[in-house]
């Protein structure tokens, strides 16, 4: 599946728009990671535990969106956007949305 954040895919013709697809996940922080982050907070620097947490969450949101597109019979998602919201204290929602389309390689390209 081709997933891009632009409206067009170079070399491809969008032949059909299948509709909007989305995927989300709400992740809460983890006690052990909080303690590690708390220690890191004293000296500064990257909080790797949180970085991983968010990366996992982002991937999962993306995967859910791709699954939805697959079910619609699309082979590409265009104009993908990521968004987040703090649902409740200590938990963050990661949200990916885009437009599922059927894209065919351009003739002669």
């Amino acid at each position: 599946m081709i997933v891009v954040s632009t409206e067009i895919i170079p070399g491809f013709d969008t032949v059909e728009v299948k509709g909007m697809v989305q995927g989300n996940t709400v992740r809460s922080k983890h006690m052990g990671r909080d303690i590690a982050a708390g220690l890191k907070n004293l000296v500064g620097g990257e909080l790797k535990g949180y970085t991983e947490l968010l990366t996992d969450a982002r991937r999962q949101a993306l995967e859910r969106m791709m699954l939805q597109a697959e079910q619609l019979g699309a082979n590409a998602i265009v104009n993908v956007r990521y968004s987040t919201s703090a649902v409740t204290p200590g938990a963050a929602e990661l949200y990916a949305y885009g437009t599922a389309v059927v894209a065919n390689p351009m003739m002669g390209a």
Partner: peptide, 29 residues
């Protein structure tokens, strides 16, 4: 920009790339 600057090589399909970073300030900051 939303378009693709430069001549695009259509043989390679474009794809989404993403990255997260969390950086903490220290106590003194």
């Amino acid at each position: 920009v939303r378009s693709y600057p430069g001549d695009v090589d259509a043989r390679a399909e474009p794809t989404l790339v993403a990255a997260n970073v969390v950086i903490s300030a220290d106590y003194l900051m």
